[in-house]
Nucleic acid binder design. Sequence first.
DNA 1: GAGGGTGGGTTTGAAAATCCAACTGTCATG
DNA 2: CATGACAGTTGGATTTTCAAACCCACCCTC
Lengths: 175, 175
Amino acid sequence: MTSNAKQGENSVPHPEVPGRPCSAAAALQLVGERWALLAIREIFYGNRRFGQIVRNTGAPRDRLAARLRALEEAGVVERRAYSERPVRFEYHLTEAGRDLAPVMHALLAWGDRWAVDTPPVAFRHRGAPGSEHAAEHDLDLKSTCRTCGEEAGAGGLTIDVRAPGWDRSGPVEGS
Amino acid sequence: MTSNAKQGENSVPHPEVPGRPCSAAAALQLVGERWALLAIREIFYGNRRFGQIVRNTGAPRDRLAARLRALEEAGVVERRAYSERPVRFEYHLTEAGRDLAPVMHALLAWGDRWAVDTPPVAFRHRGAPGSEHAAEHDLDLKSTCRTCGEEAGAGGLTIDVRAPGWDRSGPVEGS
DNA sequence: GAGGGTGGGTTTGAAAATCCAACTGTCATG
DNA sequence: CATGACAGTTGGATTTTCAAACCCACCCTC
């Protein structure tokens, strides 16, 4: 199911994807099934117990159990016993899991704009205590290019397909 | 299926979500089904025809037809005839669809780091012609807070749940 | 020590979604 | 007239999903 070629220490399985080789497709293979991202959302919010996640996502218990297992196997969540006798676990995010924050924020921002009437949650941001932005304010994300500092908006972007046998428009004939 | 309360001019249907009211859940309701984001990826890449999207995503034809219809209904893609006789359509992104770019980029970045061996595609970025960053370079996104300019990393964030009857940890009893 | 409650799942059976291959219909081209 | 492209649709088997019920280990109270 997974092609574990050359994975680093803390890496997650590298899924194979149908169609074009694509990191987004690979990401979706790992966290794109129904309920997966909602479960991760709850863990982000600090709700780590099975019952809480069921309640707050509305997922069927059996599906959630299956997803959490898959996410564990994918290296995105980690199961920690918080009690022996009876054995009880809670779910934590791994580094890979925490690294999904930008995905969640992007989805949230899109949903705020396009999929809901009034945003049901907001994030408040506070800079470092001494800094000039120590006052709390609503978080309003934009994506900027780390190397040039400019906002990466509409234009100025070109695709560079590096996977052999593929280009922007599909599989390449002569290969 | 949708609670069309007070939608703006160019808005998409506002889906109801199970569990906690959440814009990300609403977003996933619209674009979270299998193949949907991959189809959108192809349209981003300029591949607008059914056959191309099938080929490049690997989706079953019937599923893709269903997804494209759902995405159209969701206001994310638009179907334009590029030929009468025979009637043929191609798929374009609406503004809502184009606005999914940050979601795609976030997924791509996560996948680049965690889900693939070597990134199969990269984006090249070039600033405005006169600007100091006119040279082309790899796009490397970071999320910064629009109001304070700081990178929105790990700390400094608090959740503010505004949906009535809910808080960070779940539904509120006394209501 | 019987009964009830909690937490974390698993089981069951029916409904829905998915997959794949083959098929259709409309046209253009040779 | 045969072939092929394009854009789907159809049929039938296979998987997933769902909701509700159930199970098990433990704790608490009476």
